[in-house]
Structures are given as C-alpha cells and as structure tokens.
Design a protein around this nucleic acid. Sequence first.
DNA 1: AAGCTAACGCACACATCTTGGCTTTAGGTG
DNA 2: CACCTAAAGCCAAGATGTGTGCGTTAGCTT
Lengths: 167, 167
Amino acid sequence: MVLASIRKAVEELVAEEGSDAVTIPMVAERAGVNHSSIYRRWGDARTMINDLATYRLDPDRGLPDTGDLRADLTAWAQELISHYSVPVNAALLRGGAATAGENESDCLRNRRSEAAVFAARPGAGFTGDDVIDRVVAPIVYRVVFLPWTLPETDPRSYVDGLFHRSG
Amino acid sequence: MVLASIRKAVEELVAEEGSDAVTIPMVAERAGVNHSSIYRRWGDARTMINDLATYRLDPDRGLPDTGDLRADLTAWAQELISHYSVPVNAALLRGGAATAGENESDCLRNRRSEAAVFAARPGAGFTGDDVIDRVVAPIVYRVVFLPWTLPETDPRSYVDGLFHRSG
DNA sequence: AAGCTAACGCACACATCTTGGCTTTAGGTG
DNA sequence: CACCTAAAGCCAAGATGTGTGCGTTAGCTT
C-alpha cells in the first residue's frame, strides 16, 4: 500500500519534473506518506529512484528466439524503442545517464548482456559491442537527446548495419 | 580573476562530483569568492554550468576538409573522442543528458549541425542523421555509459559503416 | 585627485532538505 | 487474547541551499 503509492508518485514526478529534480519530500507529499519513512527505507532520492526503476523492464522476460537472428534482433530493438517511448522510462534513462560512468551497475547493463546473448547465437558475425554500437547506441541517443524522433525510428536499418559489414 | 577561479572550481567540481551535484556554495567556497557574486551573475547552478561549458569546444574551429571525405569524418570523430576523454567534458555531457529532451538547445546541437555539413559535401551517400546514428551515437554512448572503453575506441569502423550501406 | 560605475563581500532572512528520537499502528506468533 | 517486531507516523532540531539589501572596493574616466 505504502510502497505502491510511493512508486506511483515517483514515476509521475520523474516523468513530470525529471529525475534530478525529484526530492524525498515531494514524493512523500504526493504519495501521502511521511517523508521519514522514505528516508529510512532508501536514504536518498537517487537510491530510491534507481531501486524503483530496476523493475521497469523485466530481466527475465525472455528474448525473441524464432531462429531468424535478424528478425529477433529487430524485434528486440523495437521493444527498446517502445519501452523508452513511455515518458517515465525515458526520464529514468536520462537520470541514469547523469550518474553513469563511475558505477558499473548502470541502468543499461541488462541491455548489454542481452546484446551479448544475440552475438553468441550461431550465425552471428558480430560481437556484443557491435550490437551496442550499431543498434543500442543510436536508439539511446535518440531517447536522450532527440526523443521526438523516436516514434519514426525504424530499427531495421540499424540491424542491417550489423549484417552488411566489411570486416 | 574572480571569473577564472570560478571557472576552475566549476570544472574541478563537475569532474569530481558530477554535474548535478554541484551547488553554488560549493563552487563559492572552492573558488574563494562569496556565493552572492555567483547568484547575481548566473542565478542558479545549471545556468552557470551551461554558460561556462559553452566555451569548451569552439563552434568556429573549422571542420577537417582535405577533399577526402572519409578521412575528414574520421578526423572529426577522433576529435570528439579526444574531447570527451577529458573528464570534465564527459561529466558535462552526462549533465546535459540529464536535462535534455525538453529543451532543443542541448549540448550536442553543434555536433549535429557539423554532421549535416559533412553529409552535404559532394560524394556523401548519407544524411546527417546517418552520421548521428552511426558515428556520433556510439561515441556518445561510450562517453556516458562506458567511459573506460573510450581510449581504445577507433572511429574508423564507425565511419566505414556510413560507406558500406546497402540502401 | 575626484567622481562614477560595476563587481564584489557581508550579513541576514527564508525555504527546503535531512536526520533522529519517540510513539503508534499493523501483522504475525505463541 | 497477549505479546513481539517491523514498518510507518509525528515532531523537532539541525544542516544546507537560495535569495536580497546594503556597504565597500577596484578600476576607469575626466
């Protein structure tokens, strides 16, 4: 009950104000709980947001696996685009970007391990880093810096880049 | 004198603490100036940081133009990598990412207009968006999320991707 | 040197965030 | 039902950040 209302308040506020403008008292007021409860549970706003954000994209959801690697990658990329088209998820990614770099447990780590899974499938002539560079990076760039171009973003050309390489 | 010490303090603190953790009192103390001077000049921390960050990469520096488009693009990409290998510049980019999306005047706008210049040169079989997707995005992704991979990042394969496309 | 102006420092008021002690409530256990 | 524990609420003090009125200084012009 309390946790659910906190989660709802955090997601609303992150989408409205941006991840770095959210404070504990703001969340407490909107959630209708006392702010000391939040301080005791998480300590600070960033820990709270990162913790609640962890559950947004299920790591056990399973990856596309039809046997057609190119189609699977395209479906996976489309899944990312759809996910980050939701404002709160985009806002969380931007907030994660602000604190990335130092901590290895950034909000895209799961994405990178998924990329490695695809690169390990038979017939893949590319590495996990290639998937990051050619598929994930352009999508993430658009989410962060050009979100209004996301609805028209077609992952097919990105995935094609993986298969049309020279070396 | 005052401005120089403020600039130095801001750059140090942004590199150390991250762009969103820098407050006016922190800067004032390290710079040895009164915080009211900073409040009067800039109003708030983000305005200050963005203003001081504006001068980090000269928009009039001129782009490589040897006649060899591929070599020019590679040199330009290498310039980006070198620039963002400096910790303060990477930290500023992460801070810019946190507040991007809404305001169109993000910290990478100049990079996009430069990309368009290359795409307009004779013999370019790609658009400015292609340059963003295939060259700028992977570099920016690494700067933000995987900064330790930056020293080994070679822009050539990214640029090659622009010339080996199918459609 | 006198006077002007813009920048700066000082002190204070105010708002907000943070933290801890203590009490109350909810849910489970013997 | 009485007891126990964990979670949440209440309240108050303290720390930090923000904003402003006013006096002072530095640098320039005449």
